[in-house]
Write a protein that binds this DNA or RNA. Structure first.
Length: 461
RNA sequence: GGUCGGGUGGCCGAGAGGCGAGGCAAGGGACUGCAAAUCCCUCUACACGGGUUCAAAUCCCGUCCCGACCUCCA
């Protein structure tokens, strides 16, 4: 099976064909850096990172753009509130986002453009749109796109323009039609602004992405992604601007669903958002990634602490098998993929089905450990590690290996082995009170002892 | 009002006409001095009412419920 992906525009899963052979260009709408990320933000990051890794594994070269929206109303609002320059607010949260992405082993984008770094491209795009007659500048410094003049509009969300509720904005008086949207917003006193032929102002949200996608990927590119809530208006307006400028734009649209709580979308404004930093106090980044990436990208993921904990436990079982297999085989598993896993991933990134194949590998692998069948241990360990690698959850990945400081593991191993030798001799003379005291003592220190056919092993909880 | 998703076992979560995904929890068993880990077995569900079909969780019609978007959103 070749790679098939869903397309929001057609609402169908279809075979993926890149514009250029073995090259894929992807633009994903990144964060507006007006606060720290919640787990919904990074779910989007994980979902598109899995897509990217799968494309790379499938032999494609991938150019991956994820922008940073570093100027918007909320950033300006925060800046006033915190008495900081707007750019300092944006940079502060951009760094928090970057750190969160790194904790979850989300690959850095090929290019990560900031909106404010691309004003020139935005002005060029507006000029083009005004020359085309698609956009107009009413004279107050705003620039609007005239949606009624478009050949098509709202094709992604399949809405009728007359059914849209008009925006409640107070300063709509300069629009020819209430549904026209701002490409550029005139400067308000005290706000940052950039000079344009139509007056000083700042970019509208939609214009940024069209201009940056064009700057880095050209007139046509393969995949445009983002959260489901961006379909309208953001992506509709990106399409409108780009098509009005004569660009082919995105060939396929992918949207990830939300993380919900009590059935409701997680969002800062609803006050039910869970910050990544908070969650990472209870689970490791690799475990949070396993949890967020485990649901299908188009399905809502209902968050609960119990579900997260369950998922983390499940991951630790897999990880424990891989470590065990490494000890028994004498080398790290290689990266192999089972047919089941490949087929699942090719079917619109069916991660839950792919996970079922990992569970099967795990069961067979553990059985092989019991039977001491090294060939079967290796096969299953290799296929599990290969799958985890695609999912960005390879425990051997350097991204997850603690860096800095000296590694105390060999020293600790020696000390624990001394204790285990004592325990073994106690067990030999059937002094179970003594042997259990050693095991309990180690358990109190967070060290778990398992008696295996190959002798005792220890691990830190 | 318009446009979209969704309702699956105790819980989470796939599937989208026919071989009962998978995980977690629970119960039983094997192994163990006892545990832990692991393996085996059990528990077998698709909101409701009609319809189509040899066959429906899946398609159609209707109903109920939940959620999202309608110019701030991942």
């Amino acid at each position: 099976m070749t790679l098939h992906l869903y397309d929001t525009a057609s609402r169908e899963v279809s075979e993926f064909k890149s514009l250029k052979p073995l090259q894929v260009s992807i633009y994903v709408c990144g964060a507006t850096v007006q606060g720290p990320p919640h787990i919904g933000h990074v779910r989007s990051g994980v979902n598109f990172d899995i897509l990217r890794r799968w494309l790379i594994k499938s032999g494609y070269g991938v150019t991956f753009i994820r922008n940073v929206t570093d100027i918007d109303d909320k950033i300006l609002h925060s800046a006033k509130h915190d008495e900081m320059p707007w750019w300092a607010v944006a940079m502060k949260y951009e760094r928090v986002f970057t750190a969160a992405y790194a904790e979850l082993n989300i690959l850095p984008p090929t290019y990560e453009p900031r909106a404010t770094g691309h004003i020139t491209q935005m002005i060029e795009l507006m000029k083009k749109l005004i020359d085309n007659g698609a956009a107009y500048a009413p004279g107050n410094g705003d620039v609007y796109l005239e949606v009624r003049k478009l050949k098509s509009y709202l094709t992604l969300s399949r809405q009728n323009i007359d059914d849209l509720q008009a925006s409640a904005d107070a300063d709509e008086t300069n629009k020819k039609d209430v549904r026209d949207f701002a490409l550029w917003k005139a400067a308000k006193p005290g706000d940052p602004s950039w000079p344009t032929p139509w007056g000083p102002g700042r970019p509208g949200w939609h214009l940024e992405c069209s201009a940056m996608a064009h700057a880095y990927l050209g007139e046509k590119f393969d995949i445009h992604g983002g959260g489901l809530d961006l379909v309208f208006p953001h992506h509709e307006n990106e399409i409108a601007q780009s098509e009005a400028a004569g660009y082919g734009f995105a060939q396929r649209w992918l949207h990830n669903a939300w993380v919900t709580q009590s059935g409701e979308k997680m969002s800062k404004s609803l006050g039910n958002s869970l910050q990544v930093n908070e969650i990472l106090k209870s689970v490791r980044g690799i475990e949070l990634r396993w949890y967020l990436g485990g649901a299908h990208y188009r399905s809502m993921l209902e968050y609960s602490p119990a579900a997260l904990e369950e998922s983390a436990t499940n991951f630790r079982r897999i990880e424990s098998f891989l470590k065990r297999a490494t000890e028994l085989i004498g080398e790290k598993p290689s990266l192999q993929l089972s047919e089941e896993f490949k087929n699942a991933m090719n079917d619109d990134l069916a991660v839950p089905t792919a996970l079922a194949s990992i569970s099967e590998n795990l069961r067979l692998g553990n059985q092989a450990v019991t039977d001491n069948d090294k060939k079967a241990i290796a096969k299953n360990a290799n296929e599990i590690r290969g799958a985890l690698d695609v999912l960005g959850c390879d425990p051997f990945d350097l991204a997850f290996v603690q860096s800095g400081g000296s590694d105390l593991t060999p020293a600790l191993d020696g000390v624990i082995k001394l204790a285990l030798t004592e325990r073994a001799s106690a067990r030999e003379r059937k002094d179970f009170a003594a042997s259990d005291a050693i095991r309990d003592g180690l358990a109190d220190l967070g060290i778990t002892i398992e008696d295996t056919a190959q002798g005792p092993r220890w691990s830190i909880n």
